Computed example of a mutant assay.
Amino acid sequence: MEQTLSEPFQKLLPILKAAGLDKINHISELSGGLSNHNYRISTPTAEYVFRLNADAADSFCSRTQERFYWRHLANAKLAPELLWVSEDERYYLSAFIKSDVIEGDIIEANIENYGQSRKHSLPWQALEGLCSAADFLQGQDSLHHLPLAFEHDPLNDSHPNQAHRLLLTLLLQLRDLPKGPYGISITEQWQEYHRKMLTFMAPSPIEGESSQIGGDWYERATQLLGIQADIQRWTDTLAGCLLQAQFCHRDLNPHNLLLKDKRLYCIDFEYATASHPLCELATVLATHALTPLQQHFLVQQYLVKHPYLTAEAIFAVPAAIEMYWVLACYWALLMAARQTDPSGHGEYIAWFDFFWPQIS
Rank of each mutant, 00 (worst) to 15 (best):
P8T: 07
I15W: 04
G33T: 10
N36A: 08
T43V: 08
P44I: 02
A46Y: 06
A54Y: 02
Y69K: 12
W70A: 15
L73M: 14
L78A: 12
S86K: 05
V101P: 00
I102R: 03
E103D: 10
E108R: 14
Y114T: 04
R118I: 12
P123Y: 07
P123C: 05
W124G: 12
C131D: 12
F136I: 02
G139A: 09
L143G: 04
A149L: 04
S158G: 04
P160M: 03
Q162V: 09
L167W: 02
T169M: 04
L171M: 14
L174T: 13
L177T: 08
T187C: 09
Q189G: 10
E192W: 15
R195T: 14
M201I: 07
M201D: 04
P203L: 07
P205K: 00
E219W: 07
R220M: 07
Q232D: 13
D236S: 15
T237R: 14
A245D: 10
F247K: 06
N253V: 06
P254F: 00
N256V: 03
L257M: 09
L258P: 03
K260N: 12
K262T: 09
C266S: 11
D268F: 01
H288F: 15
Q295N: 14
H306M: 03
P307A: 02
Y308T: 06
V317R: 12
L327R: 13
T340I: 01
Y348W: 06
I349F: 00
